[in-house]
């Protein structure tokens, strides 16, 4: 299956007063239709930087991004703008990503108004009703409301409807449910999962919550200090993590009915600053298995199963 979106060897370097900050280093990933890839990592791990680089907002410092085989870097600004509707994003805080003064109808219709190329069948209002219906908000009840009259879950669904209005191929959700209550979260997760399948979208789901990731994604990529440490089908990775960082993340998840692991399996509590990353493997300062080799050389990404990759000198084996 050819990927809808393919990012190859992308790196993002920010210039800061304290020197270059390597937000993302040599990350490759591909998104397929009807599948969702989850990017997991702590804050500062480069999750959002990858999302922006993939959207060419701005383009990555190095590496290529292809949408349906087209290299985005090879496009003129005008051509890129023409492709933009194909990649849509849903943000973390639904209330601050919706204009409080506009009505739901106009918010959802924004992409239609901004890209007037293809007039929707049956007119703008009919299309808005259809979109609101797709996210489970009946138009007659919600179209004339303003964002302040919506709950968090409803606002997030309006944001999703707006993203769908552009008829995207790729839907990127950046911590889209972390600000929501548990019950609203479940509704939005079900919706995202259903939409990727029914509309054939390729999903990129960014989250730090492994429970949420499990519910919504097919594949998962775990990031640490801007590098991929582990990648594979979500169920396999969560059942038997091979990177010590994935194992530590999993052990730290609190869950009712699950006894707390005796310790967090981490040496240091806090991740190092991305401005001064450790030599060799970035995780070695917190890794219980670190050896001299981890400080000396950056672990290469190796394939441990047909669909699983890990970058670690001392990968865990077995469950």
């Amino acid at each position: 299956m050819t990927p809808v979106l393919e990012a190859t060897g992308i790196s993002v370097v920010h210039r800061t007063r304290s020197g270059p900050l390597h937000a993302v280093t040599d990350v490759s990933l591909s998104l397929e239709a009807r599948r969702t890839l989850a990017l997991v990592g702590e804050s500062g791990s480069g999750k959002s930087s990858i999302a922006k680089a993939v959207l060419h907002l701005p383009p990555p410092t190095s590496g290529t991004v292809r949408l349906d085989g087209t290299d985005l870097a090879a496009l003129s600004a005008r051509e890129l703008r023409g492709l933009r509707p194909r990649m849509q994003m849903v943000f973390q805080d639904p209330l601050s990503s919706l204009n409080p003064r506009r009505r739901v109808r106009d918010i959802v219709a924004e992409p239609l108004d901004a890209h007037p190329g293809t007039p929707p069948k049956g007119g703008r209002d009919a299309r808005v009703d259809e979109l609101l219906d797709a996210v489970g908000l009946p138009g007659d009840l919600f179209a004339d409301r303003r964002p302040t009259q919506l709950s968090g879950g409803q606002a997030q669904r309006v944001a999703i409807a707006r993203a769908l209005a552009a008829e995207p191929r790729v839907l990127i959700a950046d911590e889209a449910v972390s600000a929501l209550d548990v019950s609203a979260q479940a509704t939005v997760l079900n919706l995202l999962r259903g939409l990727t399948e029914t509309l054939g979208l390729a999903g990129l789901f960014i989250s730090h919550d492994l429970g949420v990731v499990r519910a919504v994604s097919d594949d998962v990529a775990v990031l640490y200090l801007g590098r991929l440490c582990e990648e594979g089908p979500t169920e396999d990775v969560l059942a038997a993590p091979t990177h010590p960082y994935t194992a530590a993340l999993l052990a730290a998840v609190p869950e009712p009915g699950r006894a707390l692991a005796a310790d967090t399996r981490l040496v240091a509590a806090d991740p190092p600053s991305p401005l001064a990353p450790p030599s060799g493997c970035g995780f070695r300062t917190r890794c219980p298995l670190a050896t001299a080799r981890c400080a000396a050389e950056q672990p290469a990404t190796v394939r441990i199963a047909p669909d699983r990759r890990v970058a670690c000198h001392h990968p865990l084996t077995g469950a």
Binding site: S151, A186, N190, G211, V212, P256
Partner: peptide
Amino acid sequence: VALLRSVPRVTGELRRVLPTIPGS
């Protein structure tokens, strides 16, 4: 009961559709 049910979990059976609490 409903609250506990709708929590996404990393362990146990995989649920592709999470039970939700209707209404607000």
